[in-house]
Design a protein around this nucleic acid. Structure first.
Lengths: 335, 335
DNA sequence: GCGTGTGATGTAATCGTTTACACGTTGACA
DNA sequence: TGTCAACGTGTAAACGATTACATCACACGC
């Protein structure tokens, strides 16, 4: 069933059918109705390959996602896919994991599919001009690239992110100003976003004239970051004599681990210990007590990514970098 | 930069270039090297549209997902995408929401993209032969369709699922046999899977010679199922004088709400009240106390979906229906 | 020397659209 | 009545690959 079949049945030319399909104004209302009737009757769907060949675009955005099972990224995925679809773009998904070679390969693939643009998610590890990031430059040579929560100065690369540093500063200040003196910082990755957050933690201490005890900085690798691992690590730290009266983390899941620790160690939250997470994910309401967390405006960021992408594709001049401000959402784990 | 440019520069015909690109044996080694050199020199990438037009396949699987931000589906998404990619297939994602018209449209879209096969996720509401399911038949006419956790008897539709009914029976028996007498059942949807689970709940009571008090069946619509909504509803039920000493739910998130209720009502879990969830999602470890839940073998199901799809595409005869058995994972919320 | 099989290469049709251009038709207006 | 837009519609040429078929060169056996 192709456009010729339709044109034959409707008694018009293929050009007219095409015009109807593309809502061209140069079709009389009667013809349009006639053609539409045939199309609906046959269940005809235009062949996207042929269309792509003619237009040299298939209205597709490539989504490079390290891990769709990460709730935060999954959320972003849903937003992005939904918004792009509404705007008439489909999404080709590539879940690469976080390893560089796989991400490189993912980009190659999206390029060979001639996507109209690429969104790099979990791109928060992007930072410098090292060769590691060649694949981004590579992609940007072919199509516009937008980084979700990443920063990378390069032609045709656009960045939409949250000011993590400031957000963590604000959150840490909230802890310090509510009487906490030794704030444990649990983090997940040494990437761009991770270091920004750490810098925010330091900033807050500096603003209150406090030194940072490096022993309070506690790193978890991605695969060692289960709730139980965090809990057990904190128990061990306590046994080792490390004192702390608050915990702030780079991800909500780490905070949940901290809450587990508090329960097991018999420390009351928030009376004896405060906890603040990051992302304001759905975990916050599930945690016990419910978790205070930084909302890093994922929805706004995603909306802006879509708008930016569409703007660039329409040839408009768009800002290379857009920064949103996080917001502390207070729940039961802080005073 | 197209195949003609390459053929011109290499001094051969486009057919030869095409043969080189497709590893055809009918090319001399010298010619192959010559052409390869030109290709690498120019960074030429074949146009996927044109290729798709000719071959009428682009090695793409369409994934129809109601909601990628649902942790359970997100998990499945990751598994599926990863496995398909390993096998040389890309995934086109369509997050449609759960509404019928949108799903219909999603299928249309995947069809127009001429995907090689479609996986319908969250297809658990598929049950009968009503017109509502026409879109599945429609899709199956064009390409093989595989349902994740759904059952639908139709040519070219394959089903891979967990025996939810039996799993819930086992879980309910566990509650009854550990002394619980009034098990509240919280559920999310009236779909196929939802009804199967409810049937399992009834089966268990019947097996122990107990009547089911219909007041113990408590429905939550998808949008009314937040943790707080569940908690508040249970508090109200208690105030209304409904007695229950256990809760079993069709989704982990509902169980988390039940735990919130228990905390607020001052009922100790599992001593005074037991809770069992469903899906064995990452929420289970985050909950307090940690949630006993039914593992419905998502990973195995996804692997089987991929194997089935590849088998069908290779023209092999594959089973129309494959059923896995769930398993109760005991944690702290049961005795 | 002459068919004949074989392996490398080229030619041209094909896939299903879009769209520039050409071709009526119609109606307004001088 | 003739001219000219404006408008609707059709024709045919892209778009860039794949591939069946034709062709050609060459070697081999008779």
């Amino acid at each position: 069933m192709n456009i010729y079949d339709i044109s034959r049945r409707a008694g018009v030319s293929i050009a007219t059918v095409s015009r109807v399909l593309n809502n061209s104004p140069h079709v009389s209302e009667t013809t349009r109705k006639k053609v539409m009737a045939v199309i609906e009757g046959t269940g005809y769907v235009p062949n996207a390959f042929a269309r792509g060949l003619g237009l040299n675009t298939m209205k597709t955005i490539g989504l490079l996602c390290p891990d769709a099972s990460d709730p935060y990224l999954a959320q972003a995925l849903t937003y992005l896919e939904h918004s792009f679809r509404q705007k008439g773009y489909d999404c080709l998904l590539s879940c690469t994991g976080r390893e560089l070679p796989a991400r490189r390969q993912g980009v190659e693939l999206l390029k060979s599919r001639h996507v109209d643009g690429i969104v790099l998610m979990g791109s928060s590890f992007i930072e410098d001009n090292s060769a590691d990031n060649d694949y981004i430059r590579d992609a940007a040579k072919a199509v516009p690239v937008i980084l979700l929560n990443g920063s990378f100065p390069c032609e045709n690369v656009y960045c939409v992110l949250c000011d993590d540093q400031r957000a963590v500063t604000d959150a840490t200040l909230q802890l310090l100003d509510s009487g906490c003196r030794r704030v444990l910082y649990l983090y997940h990755s040494n990437n761009y976003s991770g270091r920004k957050k750490l810098a925010g933690y330091r900033d807050a201490h500096e603003m209150r004239g406090m030194d940072v005890d490096e022993k309070l900085l506690c790193y978890f690798s991605q695969d060692k970051s289960s709730v139980h691992q965090v809990r057990d690590t904190l128990l061990q730290l306590e046994r080792d004599g490390l004192a702390f009266d608050a915990v702030i983390t780079s991800e909500d899941i780490l905070s949940v681990g901290a809450l587990k620790y508090a329960r097991m160690a018999g420390r009351k939250v928030p009376e004896e210990m405060c906890v603040i997470g990051y992302n304001n994910s759905s975990l916050c309401n599930c945690a016990e007590p419910e978790l205070t967390s930084v909302d890093n405006k994922l929805l706004a960021i995603c909306e802006h990514i879509v708008a930016t992408m569409l703007g660039v594709l329409e040839g408009k001049e768009m800002p290379q970098k857009t920064v949103f401000t996080g917001e502390l959402i207070k729940r039961e784990s802080t005073r």
